[in-house]
Simulated scan of single mutants.
Amino acid sequence: MPLTIKTLIIFSFLLLAGCSSAPSQNSQGNEVEETVNYTDDRDPLEVINRPFWTFTWDYVDKYLAKPASEVYTTYTPPFLRTGLYNMALNLNEPASIINNVLQLKFENAAKSTGRFVLNSTIGLFGFYDPASDFGWAGEQEEFGEVLGSYGIGDGPFLVIPGLGPSSVREEVGDYIDGLYWPMSVISFWPNIARLSILALEQRAAVRDQEQLVLDSADPYEFIKNAYFQNMNYRLYDGNPPIVIDEEQEAEIEALLEEFD
């Protein structure tokens, strides 16, 4: 989605959040401050996010994203599909180089540099991926991960209408990534094509996990928890630290002592 549109949506979140706690009048005409109790500190905008999630999952995904992804993956020749996806990812490599350097991951930065140079030349602007034959493969780094590596939290959970789960940190990171070359010079329609290819492939990739969402007691909570787990997984390059809930551990120990 173009940056200006996403910025307006996020601004609308903040505006609506302010309206949700605006004072009202009771039957006697006295002004009463309405407050909303949130059970999840990560999701202070839940009252807004839930309707946006319903709209995204029950309507946009059901009637647009999922059918479009199925048509695309079914009727697009595999070699063309792979090539277009490679080209879309290749445009992210310059940003990944800088983001790796900012995290002092110089080896990964060197691999991203090699990937971009080799795939953009021999690989015909990224359509082919000869860099993988040299072992130059790896997850691309986003600026949101750079912020996380320096201790900046995810911030409030967001559901972007029509797009799905996100967070303030991820949106800030995406904005910065969009300022890097070549993203900063790509015109509107080529960028829409790039984002469409990425979105269609990402929707196809989660097709097998779709039933987990449908079977969950609360799909919104399921998606939110999965989102934060995925962000944490990516932040620590697949090796997130094990967090021990001391209060829960104490309750378990007390329960075991009763049986002794």
Rank of each mutant, 00 (worst) to 15 (best):
T76H: 03
R81C: 04
P51L: 10
M1E: 05
T121P: 07
E246V: 07
P130I: 08
P94D: 06
S24R: 14
S20W: 01
D154V: 03
I223G: 00
L256G: 01
E247D: 14
N30Y: 08
M1R: 03
Q209E: 12
L200R: 07
G29P: 11
R81F: 02
K6W: 00
L8W: 10
G135C: 12
G126D: 03
F157L: 04
E221G: 00
E170V: 06
W57E: 13
P44Y: 03
T113R: 09
S69R: 00
F79A: 12
L212V: 09
G83Q: 09
D40P: 01
M87R: 03
A254G: 08
L8F: 13
V60L: 04
L14K: 10
E257Q: 14
E210D: 08
I252Y: 13
D177N: 15
G153D: 08
G164K: 02
D215C: 06
P77I: 08
I244A: 07
I98D: 02
T7R: 14
L214D: 14
L195E: 12
E107G: 14
F13T: 00
F259Y: 10
L214C: 03
P161E: 04
L200E: 02
R207L: 10
G238R: 13
N86W: 01
D133I: 01
P44E: 02
I244L: 13
F13E: 02
E251S: 09
V32M: 11
D237K: 14
F188Y: 14
E171K: 13
F125G: 09
E46W: 00
E33T: 08
N230S: 14
L255G: 08
Y233A: 05
E70K: 15
L84W: 07
A110Y: 08
P156Y: 04
Q209C: 02
L235Q: 10
L158Q: 07
G29H: 13
E257G: 02
P44V: 00
A65C: 05
P161H: 07
R207V: 12
F52E: 08
P182A: 12
V168E: 01
L158V: 05
F116P: 03
L255D: 12
W181V: 12
P182Y: 04
F116I: 07
S196N: 08
V172K: 00
W181M: 14
A17C: 01
P240Y: 05
S12C: 08
V206T: 13
F157V: 09
F79R: 11
D177G: 11
L104H: 02
I252K: 15
E170F: 02
V36L: 11
L198W: 00
